[in-house]
Simulated scan of single mutants.
Amino acid sequence: MTTPRFDIIGQALSDASRTRMLCELMEGRSFTNKELASAAGITAQTATAHLRLLQNAGLVLAEKRGRCVFHRLANAEVAQVLEQLAALAPSSHLHLAQRRKAGDIAQLRSCYDHLAGPVAVAMTGQFLDRGMLVEENGGFRACGHEIWPKLGVSLPQKPSAVARHQPFARPCMDWTERRLHVSGLLGKQILTHFFDQGWVRRNSHKRGLQITGLGLRALEQVLGLRCEALIDA
Rank of each mutant, 00 (worst) to 15 (best):
P167W: 02
T176G: 10
W199L: 03
L133W: 04
A49H: 13
E136T: 12
I190M: 07
F70Q: 08
I211T: 08
Y112F: 15
L61P: 04
W148F: 12
R109C: 01
L94G: 14
L191R: 05
R20G: 11
I105W: 06
L53M: 13
A62V: 02
A44T: 14
A39W: 02
L73M: 09
S38E: 11
K34C: 03
A89C: 10
A47E: 03
A16V: 09
A233N: 11
S30I: 00
F6Q: 12
I8Q: 09
S38G: 15
L53V: 15
V60N: 03
Q189T: 12
L191C: 03
G152K: 00
H50G: 00
K206V: 11
R130I: 13
L94F: 13
R164T: 06
S14M: 10
T43D: 12
L214E: 02
Q98P: 06
C227Y: 00
L191H: 04
A161T: 04
A122D: 02
G58C: 01
V119R: 06
G187A: 03
V119E: 03
L108E: 00
R20T: 14
I231L: 15
R178V: 10
G66T: 00
L223E: 07
T2N: 09
W148Q: 11
F194I: 07
R141Q: 13
V182A: 03
D129Y: 06
V153A: 10
V200Q: 06
N137V: 02
A120W: 02
K64I: 14
E77Q: 14
T212N: 00
A142C: 08
Q55M: 14
L36K: 05
E35L: 05
D232C: 10
R100V: 04
K34N: 11
G198F: 04
I211N: 01
E27T: 05
G152N: 04
K158I: 13
L94P: 12
T192Q: 08
V121I: 09
T43W: 13
F195Y: 10
F127L: 00
H145Y: 13
N56H: 15
L51F: 05
A40N: 09
F168A: 02
R20P: 09
T46S: 15
G125S: 05
E228A: 08
E135W: 09
A120Q: 04
K150V: 10
G66E: 04
I8N: 02
L36P: 06
I9S: 02
L128M: 10
M173C: 14
Q107C: 11
R141K: 13
Q84M: 14
G131E: 10
A87R: 01
S160H: 02
E24S: 15
S110P: 02
I42L: 12
S154H: 12
A86V: 07
Q166K: 04
Q189N: 07
C68R: 15
Q84Y: 00
Q55W: 01
A86S: 13
W199E: 00
V78W: 00
I42T: 09
L85W: 04
E135Y: 08
P90M: 11
I147L: 15
T19P: 14
P4R: 11
G131M: 09
V200H: 07
